[in-house]
Design a binder for these strands. Structure first.
Length: 684
DNA sequence: AATCTAGCTTGATGTCAGAG
DNA sequence: CTCTGACATCAAGCTAGATT
């Protein structure tokens, strides 16, 4: 099965013309027209690094904010307040409106409550005389609307491989909005490599035969899958295993002194705010993190009830929707649209806010946000409700709510209970407008979600609605998934051809590792790559999640689509022969990977490998292999892995665990003939 | 009890506008 | 012209409830 050809052996350093990260010192010998790929500019990041000027004691505040597409300066006569703990370093400043302005009918109950309306975080060097000092005093923003502004100074030290702590914690977080006990962490993990690197699990790490078809060692008595967590048992022998449990495989000592280990690869230890050992490291690491992050970090947008939303929906890259001027009870419109995790609104400062509409594609619709109908004083409930679903789902539900709200408002409807007749009319209207069944059902789901939260009756599962949706599905049935699997043979060819499209030796190693991991790990692209806007590495493989051994690599998946609670799983890949070997590929890449950034897969300048680039290179090399790129996607690696495992004789349960499926839907990926034909295909 | 199905949730992806 | 981010849509994936 293995070709064993040495693809990269005689490869010269070639170049291609895109990507964000090519080492300028490397000699570009392009074999691909620059039209296909070119160096992306990074000036936006430079702009983003422009810092803020902090006006202490009520002085003027100037925030230069910027991003991928826009740069705006917001001035406001404000002051900041807070108790700053860290002494020096590079801090990010989170600013948010305490509340929205008063509209024609201001709600005093909301206006009076301090809370962050919109926040944005920018960074700045800071140097404070003494930890614990009250350096900056609070105050209200001047202006007719009397908005207070709240800032949080955040000195982030980055994180170390303390998987047991859950998602990376932003290191030191200090300021007015951070209670003292939240500053720093109760314990410090000192070393970069987690304890299991020392081999404590060693007995359980059986070679994984897949997809070689049974060449492995079966050790059912191992700790693998037994002592380490869920899903144990003999069926694990072949598999990638799942190590569950709250702590994950990464041990975190309950206590201990701060001890910085040697080169941290951009991931310094978490340290106490008050730790003298840690401050310098914190500052250094944070600077590094900021540089990697592109400068602007945003927080989850929080919003309050009534008022005028002056800026919302800002992309991390700087897009901001101008929503100013809206009045009345249904004022918010698109403000929540950025809840997708990758972005957050940018603040607008004072009374004369300058708000950019750059990058906004969606015009103000004047349609309500569901939160507008929340009873006063229950905002905390709303915030927690938001956490009950994924950010993407929240965004989508909001879109559904807005669309249905707009439709209902055009009928004789007042906010509140909805009749099934009206819902049926909505379905009919959507059908005539050309929406698919899935889209309409999604809109209904979103509206129903918020209706339930608000106590509105919304019979979206009524007979009429259900039948109409069924009719839509029958009229326009789903198209079969046309994406073809990337077989192991094709993977081999892709890797062999990579040098022809890569710009440098480094990129050959990067994409070889990326493709090999995508296939053998059966990763979703979102599990493999870190989104550029994700500065904390909430998703995707991070450097600290990887452990290379002589014959295995282990990859810790902190969370995934099927692990929303973030229990974590570890994927172990074993060495095989040939150019596709994930262990060899990853180790080769790790040997040249720059000591920068959080993401595992990044360019030589530290920028993360993006989906766009991953797909662009995949398409280039597919074309070079004589394949039609239109038939493949990033998911083709996952489809190929399932298909390949099936053809190699891996049992159904094995395939299920390989791709971390918790249902039988993996069967739709068994596509020995290329195209999906149905769930019963494959006869598993 | 086993199987099927619809509904809900969520990741992947295509398209568009804008930045550079 | 490429690349990014936002959005809309498609489709994966899970589960509760209905059906057999």
């Amino acid at each position: 099965m293995e070709s064993g050809s040495g693809a990269g052996a005689g490869a010269v350093e070639l170049s291609f013309a895109a990507g964000s990260s090519f080492d300028e010192e490397e000699e570009p010998v392009s074999t691909v027209p620059t039209r296909e790929r070119s160096l992306p500019p990074r000036r936006s990041r430079e702009i983003a690094r422009e810092s803020i000027a902090l006006g202490a004691g009520g002085g003027p505040l100037e925030i230069a904010r910027s991003g991928g597409r826009a740069r705006k300066v917001v001035r406001s006569g404000g002051s900041v307040g807070g108790r700053v703990v860290a002494e020096s370093g590079r801090a990010s400043l989170t600013a948010g409106e305490v509340d929205s302005m008063a509209g024609p009918e201001p709600r005093a109950d909301l206006v009076s409550q301090p809370d962050v309306l919109h926040t944005a975080t920018v960074e700045s060097d800071f140097s404070l005389p003494q930890a614990g000092d009250h350096l900056l005093s609070g105050g209200a923003v001047a202006g007719p609307t009397e908005r207070a502004v709240q800032f949080r100074v955040q000195a982030s030290a980055g994180t170390v491989g303390a998987g047991g702590l859950g998602d990376p914690v932003g290191g030191l977080s200090v300021g007015v909005s951070a209670p003292a006990q939240s500053i720093g962490l109760p314990s410090v993990h000192s070393s970069f490599w987690p304890p299991w690197a020392s081999g404590s699990w060693g007995a359980g790490w059986s070679p994984v035969p897949w997809p070689m078809g049974g060449a492995g060692v079966f050790d059912p008595a191992s700790a693998w899958g037994r002592g380490m967590g869920r899903g144990g048992g003999p069926a694990d022998w072949w598999a990638l295993g799942g190590v569950g449990g709250a702590g994950g495989p990464f041990g975190v000592p309950p206590s201990g002194a701060v001890q910085l280990s040697g080169p941290c690869f951009g991931l310094s230890s978490q340290v106490f705010a008050g730790s003298s050992v840690g401050r310098e490291a914190a500052a250094t690491s944070f600077q590094e993190q900021v540089q990697r992050s592109g400068g602007v970090q945003t927080e989850e947008p929080g919003r309050r009830g009534l008022g005028r939303v002056v800026a919302a929906d800002g992309a991390a890259g700087g897009g901001i929707s101008a929503m100013s001027g809206q009045r009345g009870p249904y004022m918010v419109a698109a403000a929540d649209g950025a809840a997708g995790g990758s972005s957050g609104p940018i603040i607008a400062g004072g009374a004369q806010d300058m708000v950019s509409s750059v990058g906004a594609r969606r015009a103000a619709s004047g349609v309500a946000d569901a939160r507008s109908f929340m009873e006063p004083g229950r905002e905390g409930l709303w915030d927690l409700l938001r956490q009950s679903v994924a950010p993407t789902t929240w965004t989508r539900y909001n879109a559904g709510f807005r669309r249905l709200f707009a439709f209902l408002s055009s009928r004789d409807w007042s906010p509140g209970h909805v009749s099934e007749t009206l819902l049926a009319e909505f379905v009919l209207d959507s059908h005539r407008a050309g929406f698919s069944r899935g889209v309409v059902a999604g809109h209904l789901a979103g509206f129903t979600f918020f209706s339930r939260a608000l106590g509105w009756r919304c019979p979206s599962s009524g007979f009429l609605v259900r039948r109409l949706l069924t009719a839509m599905a029958r009229i326009a049935p789903r198209q079969p998934d046309a994406r073809q699997p990337i077989s192991h043979d094709l993977l081999t060819r892709l890797i062999v051809e990579l040098p022809a499209v890569a710009r440098s030796r480094y990129e050959v190693l990067l994409f070889t590792a990326a493709f090999s991991l995508a296939f053998f790990g059966a990763f979703r692209v979102g599990e493999l790559l870190v989104h550029p806007a994700d500065t904390v590495g909430a998703r995707g493989l991070l450097l600290r999640h990887v452990q290379c051994g002589d014959s295995t690599v282990s990859l810790y998946l902190a969370r995934s689509k099927t692990d929303q609670l973030g229990r974590g799983r570890t994927v172990v890949l074993n060495k095989i022969n040939g150019v596709t070997c994930p262990v060899t590929a990853l180790c080769a890449y790790m040997a040249v990977r720059p000591p920068l950034g959080l993401a595992l897969l990044l360019h030589v300048d530290g920028g993360p490998l993006t989906r766009y680039q991953f797909l662009a290179v995949l398409r280039l090399v597919l074309r070079r292999c004589g394949e039609d790129p239109a038939h493949f996607g990033t998911h083709s690696f996952r489809i190929g892995a399932a298909t390949c495992a099936f053809l190699a004789g891996v049992p159904g349960e094995g395939i299920r665990r390989l791709g971390r499926w918790s249902s039988d839907c993996y069967r739709s990926y068994i596509r020995p003939h290329g195209i999906a034909r149905g769930l019963d295909q494959g006869g598993i």
